[in-house]
Amino acid sequence: MTTEAVAVSSEVYDNRVAFADELIELAEHDDRVVAVCNDSVGSSNLVGFRDRFPDRLINVGIAEQDMVGVGAGLANAGMIPFVCGAAPFLTGRSLEQIKADVAYSQLPVILCGMSPGVAYGELGPTHHSIEDLSWLRALPGLDIVIPADRAQTRQAVRQAVEHPRPTFIRVGRFKVPDLPQQVLERGRFQTMRDGVDVTIIAAGTAVSRALAAAERLEGDGFSARVLNAAYLNPLDEAAIAAAANETRAIVTAEEANVSGGLGAAVARIVLEQPAPARVPVEMLGFRDFAPTGSAGFLLELAELTEAGIARAALNALQR
């Protein structure tokens, strides 16, 4: 995998814009596409969709359990509902609806968790969504997609319409750069860069930082592989096993609580490997409710930075 052709962009973008643009484009050609929201027309960036398709924007008000159930009913009726709400409330308030009405019922509802992770910064832990990956990863039959940039966000939306199935898409608000072009493939990590010493498996906002950390490690004489964990369910167990068998250490980096998200997922697969491949795993992410601070500040505090990820890689290699 070469990455010379296109570099990481210097500009950064809000993935919600790409999400909404793609959704409108798809809705033009497919009248099954509807959006459901919880008074989040603005924060889910659905103003354009509403103006274009007023009948196909179902705003249930501030009622997340209802919102997810309504989404399931719309799917039952043959529509393709994109259920949009701030990730903490969409996942936390309606977790049982996501479990029973969507995942267990196997209805093709596309749950769009807006502004996930610590995007809401100073608004505090009530508004952070760092538990979502732990909660949702426990649900069989629910795809979990964490697009790392605008292009992947668009691909995630398009694939949801082309192959509707129960899905959670984390739609980032914290601005990220465009990455070297990657094809989003269900259940696969993308190899952003190959390496032989250490593997960095990063998701969402951490991917561009992981690439920068790999550059820094190269300067220190270490070769780092970087995997973009754009799908957490289904999990790319083969890529994790390969990382454990082909490199000497693994770092995971996610804007989530490490207890049940990407880090825990990777650790399980590593522990299932034969002894020599049970390599050290360093998990970057959150371990507590976050203190007051901007999203950028909190990512730094969690070491989810170029320097922090590189440091974790060196630590892992020395263990």
Binding site: V36, D55, V68, G69, V70, A72, G73, G78, M79, A100
Partner: peptide
Amino acid sequence: VETNTGPLGHGVPVAVGAAIGAKLK
């Protein structure tokens, strides 16, 4: 069976979604 029930308070929201869907179609 249209939707998996058991936990209480799930049927009506799903029915509302199905009714909205029928009207849209």
